[in-house]
């Protein structure tokens, strides 16, 4: 198998004040070398928790991985000790966070924050690490890197800080880069710059990217494959083309419909009515059933199994059962900007 990363039936639970929140319920995913996998879903769907689980950064307590495997190059990271994980983090798998304003240590020079990983993982000397830090800053498009390497985070703008965060993440040439909403906190124009940068860097370094986002525009821009999460479950996954043009899950339809379009016939934004399920008491059927316009009795009773629509696309929905009535996806799901 050429899978760099394979997640098998991952379950994550948070034990909060008596309530047990099942944040991730039986998610299976895989990631190939050099590809970009997007995980989309609204807030609370479990996408960020999944990414934190890969990094081994789920705070315990209150969080714990109750079952499942996270195979990185064949090794199960779930059973790695903290010490072993420290050798993976930053070196093999690294992460970019949502808010660049808070992701950097305010009292440490930017250069030093980049150098830390280099000194730890590549056993570089301070001078070499500094040289490499300057190089990295140049790589992520920060002007005058030899000056800025000695500056503090607050001297950088939001977009520039995100570039620094990316430089930190890429410092040791990781095999996987997890980007958790990397552009959400940024201005639209800066967003485009950061996405361009990520695409360019991926071309140069061949790093595989797991992109966590709720923004389908970003997905269309960057990803080759997409996983759609809802209520802690992976409800549909497929290639970018499959998800955007032949989606089968009503939630994916809803997501696509709710994307604002340039040449839309109506000026109304379509929203999915309702709110995500309470994961401290997960529904026994499909989590989307209460909000699904096509819901059937069976949906509230039992979680559907995956239907394999192609080598790459699988969907968990009762509508794909032979016994279910035929349902056509709504017309509103056309891809943005057509």
């Amino acid at each position: 198998m050429d899978n760099l990363l394979e997640i098998k039936d991952l379950n994550v639970r948070f034990n909060l004040f008596g309530a047990k929140v099942q944040a991730v319920r039986g998610v299976s995913l895989h990631l190939k070398k050099g590809e970009t996998l997007a995980i989309v879903g609204e807030s609370g769907s479990g996408k960020s928790v999944t990414s934190k689980a890969i990094m081994g950064l789920i705070p315990n307590p209150p969080g714990e991985i109750t079952s499942g495997e996270i195979l990185f190059e064949g090794h199960d990271l779930v059973h790695y000790s903290n010490k072993q994980m420290q050798k993976i983090r930053g070196k093999e798998i690294s992460m970019i966070f949502q808010d660049p304003m808070t992701a950097l240590n305010p009292t440490m020079k930017v250069g030093k924050q980049i150098m830390e990983g280099l000194i730890k993982h590549q056993k570089m000397s301070r001078q070499d690490a500094k040289k490499r830090a300057i190089e990295l800053l140049r790589l992520v498009g920060i002007p005058k890197p030899e000056v800025r390497v000695n500056e503090y985070p607050h001297q950088f703008s939001g977009g520039m800080r995100q570039r620094v965060v990316i430089a930190i993440a890429l410092a040791c040439n990781p095999k996987i880069l997890i980007a958790d909403e990397p552009t959400t906190a940024l201005d639209v124009t800066i967003q485009a710059q950061i996405l361009d940068l990520m695409r360019e860097l991926q071309k140069k370094t061949g790093t595989a990217i797991i992109l966590i986002t709720h923004d389908l525009g970003v997905v269309a821009n960057l990803a080759q494959r997409v996983g759609v999460m809802y209520g802690g479950k992976l409800v549909e996954t497929g290639t970018l083309e499959e998800i955007f043009y032949r989606p089968k899950h009503p939630y994916t339809w809803g997501l696509l419909s709710s994307m604002p379009k340039l040449h839309a016939k109506t000026d109304k934004l379509l929203a999915i009515p309702g709110s995500p399920p309470d994961l401290s008491d997960p529904p026994k059927g499909c989590p989307f059933a209460p909000r699904c316009p096509y819901a059937m009795k069976v949906c509230t009773e039992q979680m559907p199994e995956y239907t394999y629509l192609s080598d790459t696309q699988r969907t968990a929905c009762w509508l794909l059962d032979k016994r279910a009535p035929k349902v056509e996806p709504p017309e509103t799901i056309g891809v943005g900007g057509e």
């Binding site: 992460m95 808070t102 240590n105 730890k120």
Partner: peptide, 29 residues
């Protein structure tokens, strides 16, 4: 609880490096 502590952990630093280099200094100010 700050994000930059998670960043430091994500770099693969040891717990003691995170606490001493990142947390204590900022807490001391």
């Amino acid at each position: 609880n700050q994000d930059y502590i998670v960043t430091a952990q994500a770099k693969g630093l040891t717990t003691s490096a995170v606490v001493f280099r990142h947390a204590i200094r900022n807490a001391l100010i």
